[in-house]
Design a protein around this nucleic acid. Sequence first.
DNA 1: GTTAATTCTAAGTGAATTACTCGGGTATAG
DNA 2: CTATACCCGAGTAATTCACTTAGAATTAAC
Lengths: 137, 137
Amino acid sequence: MKLSSRAHYAIKTVLELSTHADEPVTLAHLAQAQNISISYLEQIFALLRKCDIVKSARGPGGGYMLNKPLTDISIAAIVKAVDKATVKETSMEPEFNKSDSHTLWLSLLELIGGYLDSISLAELHSIYKTPEATNKD
Amino acid sequence: MKLSSRAHYAIKTVLELSTHADEPVTLAHLAQAQNISISYLEQIFALLRKCDIVKSARGPGGGYMLNKPLTDISIAAIVKAVDKATVKETSMEPEFNKSDSHTLWLSLLELIGGYLDSISLAELHSIYKTPEATNKD
DNA sequence: GTTAATTCTAAGTGAATTACTCGGGTATAG
DNA sequence: CTATACCCGAGTAATTCACTTAGAATTAAC
């Protein structure tokens, strides 16, 4: 029940991408800004790209861009994208006895997932920018 | 960003406890119901007890009881209680560069944490019981 | 068409975490 | 005293995490 490091960097770099409009930003630039290795970021961006959150341009002058407006990117989308990495389709949860516990679990996961779905990055960004007055708008 | 197995069993067993009013329920009983080992459940209940979610009675005829009404137990409380297990006070998150990223992260964690705090087990239980009409009331 | 800049991909690694088990000890009702 | 229960600390195999390493593929610029 905590956010992974991958998710952290994913959110931060996507936020950074949003400040560059439509010009590609290189991984080298983003990696330096976050003070992590390019290789590690590559891994993260591969996942973000698979989920159509970002798009890429190869070769010199290339880099990454957002694939949709910030308001259309939920926190859940990003977290799911990067956590998908190590998922092995066979086991989402440990296999509990298949009684009604299943139903309970689905209810809980939907509650949480649904909530995260409702927070777009744009919202988070505005909270971020005005920390002492988070819920004015 | 997923729930641990410990958290799952904690929630399920606490829910079960609530159906037994004020009579102690043994770990043996709970363990059998969830089809896990007593030793494992012991570990979980030690944590729940430390956080005053349950209370215990030793000796024959003993067992565990809820320490407060279901409506006063939030999902967050349970999850935090059992996840606290492996926390080493030194590192909550990987140490990112201490710029404003800190602020961003706090905002996000508060959003999520605050939400979980707002869901009591009683609520979850009622959702559980009426799966096809979750948000009436 | 070579070079340099960039994305892409797969695989490996050490440390931490998870999901348990094992082997006891301690309180207490009968 | 003995059986029933909670209590506690350590151990362990498997998995996951947070990265690194090594190199292949694409493409703009010369």
